[in-house]
Design a binder for these strands. Structure first.
Length: 254
DNA sequence: ATGGCGCGCGCAGCGCGA
């Protein structure tokens, strides 16, 4: 199974990129974030015509998640159970015997913002839920835009980003707490190029200069980590006209 | 110099992202 996560920054604008990319890569499951579209306006027909089942949970202007799968989608869950949240950031499904959780973790804005505290609370609730999901599903995949660069090697300029949002120690501690549950960062199961990132600012020619962060992740339970054959960032869509500011991250699991 | 770019919304220019 080829499984991907991609923050598309508007499903409407990026639909041609997404459909081309699915056709070229033959991806089996892709989890999207920042679809920024109410469910009534989601481009379901175009995606189904490409051979995918699709589920989505969206809202106007902000947030929004979707999961596309070539195999049937079952047991859809929207949001973190027991965590009241107006923002559409979480979608979980089962495909075959694999549980797949798609996350758009809050950005946090800055470490002194109310939004940062919301992010930390959100991550606390996520960890408790993931502990329960791991107990129920030996084959668990947790993917998405985590809005956390786990280590300094995931940051183009660690000094400039030190203690800033996306890189702060409390955020990184929450990321490590997920790993401590028994999840593996699929990207770090393999040798990777130096300076591998998944997001680059639209400004300052940041992509051309590779001024990025690795904030989009694929976490795998032990049973799936053992079957994981590769995990890569696909920079190709970031080079297109009107790209998302994020690149897809892709894992192949036997 | 605290902007820069690109999105949605909606028709001007603002909030937000990361």
């Amino acid at each position: 199974m080829k499984l991907a996560t991609w923050n598309v920054n508007s499903i409407k604008v990026r639909l041609p990129h997404l459909l081309d990319w699915l056709s070229q890569t033959q991806t089996d499951v892709v989890c999207l974030q920042e679809t920024k579209t109410e469910d009534a306006n989601f481009p379901r027909t175009e995606i189904e015509a490409a051979g995918y089942q699709v589920v989505f949970a969206g809202q106007k202007t902000y947030n929004g998640v979707a999961i596309l799968s070539r195999e049937p989608i079952k047991a859809v869950q929207v949001g973190i159970p027991g965590f009241a949240d107006e923002q559409k950031r979480v979608l979980a499904v089962t495909v075959g015997d694999t549980r797949i959780v798609d996350l758009y973790v809050p950005n946090g804005q800055s470490v002194d913002s109310d939004k940062y505290q919301y992010k930390l609370n959100w991550l606390e609730a996520l960890a408790a839920w993931m502990k329960a999901e791991l107990a129920q599903y030996p084959k668990l995949v947790v993917v998405g835009d985590f809005n956390i660069a786990p280590e300094d090697r995931d940051v183009h300029d660690p000094a400039a980003w030190q203690d800033q949002v996306l890189c702060s120690e409390p955020e990184r501690a929450h990321f490590r707490a997920l790993l401590d549950l028994g999840l593996k960062d699929a990207f770090r199961l393999f040798e990777q190029p130096e300076k591998s990132y998944s997001w680059w600012d639209y400004r300052q020619g940041a992509f051309r200069r590779n001024m990025g962060l690795r904030i989009d992740h694929i976490l795998l339970s032990e049973a799936l980590a053992q079957r994981c054959q590769s995990c890569t960032v696909d920079n190709a869509p970031r080079k297109l006209e009107r790209p998302s500011d994020h690149a897809p991250v892709v894992a192949e699991i036997a």
